[in-house]
Write a protein that binds this DNA or RNA. Structure first.
Length: 445
RNA sequence: UCGACAGUAGCUCAAUGGUGGAGCAUUCGGCUGUUAACCGAAGGGUUGCAGGUUCAAGUCCUGCCUGUCGAGCCA
């Protein structure tokens, strides 16, 4: 008898099939039982009638516990009441392993309880849907990059120094060479790749040791960083919107069932079409001033509100929300005050106080999902900047070599995979966007 | 790191300073179309830890621990 997966069950109506999976839940009604069986691809309701199955099968079903692994055989039928829903009229059961009492019931649970059992929580329909969408996002990223001539360029995880010199890094002993740090970005290495291969991208884990306890931060997250030679900041933004449109459309096309499981309002995602709004930092500040959103600065006695919003300050959560709320697409904020941005960003030739950076803010208040820029390609400027930021000059010699030997205008950006998943899936918290999230107060399971 | 809030049965939550309860889960019984099924019964507690106020503390006070949310940092 053919073994089938539940998400393909509609192809087998009136056929006898085998399903290999686990018992998700079971309801009984005297001489009838309704086991819900999951196999990783979906859930199907089985029907077991005492009058039509052997007594041993009926007894075996009676003793089944939640999450017991089972193989069932039966005929696929249409649900008597529901459209496009299928059932399995079960006539045989093989118990592979009878599960011990299962801690995660179909009822409500708290976050801590579930996170302590993340390895089991992953089996629930909601988590399965999220991880399937994560898979589609990453696969579509790889496909987009491959189709468009980008070369996968894996950056190292052990690095000798801070890439951007700002955030706190995880340190570890590295043989006789002193401290090594876990990478917070593959960008600098991707720049070397871009000058070798033209267009490259990295896709791998990155690490930030900041004690950030918010719904948008994890300490270990996956980042995709394309880097392109002969791209300026505007080429970079062209790529960002084309890329984001592709990924979102792929999820809409291939993950309709999963989005429905999550209750996602897909009409919001369907609006993610080119072109996206591009506003300069100056224009964003104008929006904040018009809406009278102040800068909030901490003082010894508490906090003070500064209005109008002063030019040169970075945006916080309330500012991002105010900027995004009038748009239904990702918003690209570009050309930032250089003071607020990293050392490697190229200055605007028309205004040295401006850095050619771009932040992409997801709609619906999900915040920053992409940070990118045109990179500084002048050796003298970059040397000056590294000294100003008091970065270890020797460690950056190889990076400066990229400006010594055939420097070109080049650009790139970093996309936070989990933030993308959080947005697409409309999650409350980033911790659901990765199988085993790492946060400052959690390393297990 | 700072601020706010919370911690009571395996889980989710109630309980005016005055004898700690319910739903679910578990066990047993009932039910031939259930949908987080339902109905009946049973078992299940050092109220996060330490101290204090009080005739009396789950409840008020202090400290600690743990967690959640927010801020900063950013993807």
């Amino acid at each position: 008898m053919q073994r089938v997966y539940i998400n393909k069950i509609s192809d087998f109506v009136d056929k006898d099939v085998t399903i290999k999976g686990w018992l998700y839940n079971i309801r009984s009604s005297g001489k009838l039982m309704f086991p819900e069986i999951r196999d990783g691809s979906g859930i199907i309701q089985g029907v077991v009638a005492k009058s039509t199955v052997p007594e041993s099968v009926w007894e075996d079903f009676s003793k089944l516990t939640q999450e017991s692994s089972i193989i069932v055989k039966g005929k696929v039928s249409k649900h008597p009441k529901k459209e496009n829903v299928f059932e399995l009229q079960i006539n045989d059961l093989e118990i592979i392993s009878l599960a011990e009492p299962y801690p995660i019931t179909p009822k409500e649970h708290g976050v801590e309880f579930l996170m302590d059992r993340r390895h089991l929580w992953l089996r629930t329909p909601r988590q399965v849907a999220i991880l399937r969408i994560r898979n589609e996002i990453i696969q579509s990223i790889r496909d987009y990059m491959y189709i468009n001539g980008f070369i996968l360029f894996d950056a190292p995880i052990f690095t000798p120094n801070a890439c951007e010199g700002t955030t706190t890094l995880f340190a570890t002993e590295y043989f006789d060479l002193g401290k090594a740090y876990l990478s917070q970005s593959g960008q600098l290495y991707a720049e070397a790749g871009a000058l070798a291969l033209g267009k490259v991208y990295t896709l791998g884990p990155t690490f930030r040791a900041e004690n950030s306890m918010t719904r948008k931060h994890i300490t270990e997250f996956w980042m995709m960083e394309p880097e392109m030679a002969y791209y300026d900041i505007d080429d970079n933004m062209d790529l960002i919107e084309d890329f984001l449109e592709y990924v979102v459309s792929r999820v809409l096309k291939n993950c309709a069932v999963e989005l429905q499981t999550l209750g996602r309002d897909v009409s919001k995602l369907e609006k993610v079409k080119k072109p996206f709004p591009r506003i300069t930092y100056d224009e964003a500040v104008e929006i904040l001033r018009k809406k009278d959103i102040p800068l909030i600065r901490k003082t010894e006695s508490g906090e003070e509100q500064i209005r109008p919003f002063p030019w040169g300050e970075d945006f916080g959560a309330p500012h991002e929300e105010a900027i995004v709320e009038d748009f239904e697409k990702p918003v690209m904020v570009h050309r930032w005050p250089a003071e607020a941005k990293s050392f490697y960003m190229k200055r605007d030739p028309k205004n040295p106080d401006i850095a050619l950076g771009v932040d992409v803010l997801a709609p619906e208040g999900f915040g920053e999902i992409i940070g990118g820029s045109q990179r500084e390609d002048s050796l003298a400027e970059l040397e000056k900047r590294i000294k100003e930021h008091k970065l270890p000059f020797d460690d950056f010699q190889w990076y400066l070599d990229l400006r010594r030997f055939g420097s070109v205008p080049h650009s790139g950006f970093g996309l936070g995979i989990e933030r993308m998943v959080t947005w697409i899936c409309n999650l409350e918290h980033i911790r659901e966007a990765i199988p085993f999230p790492r946060r400052p107060n959690r390393i297990k399971p």
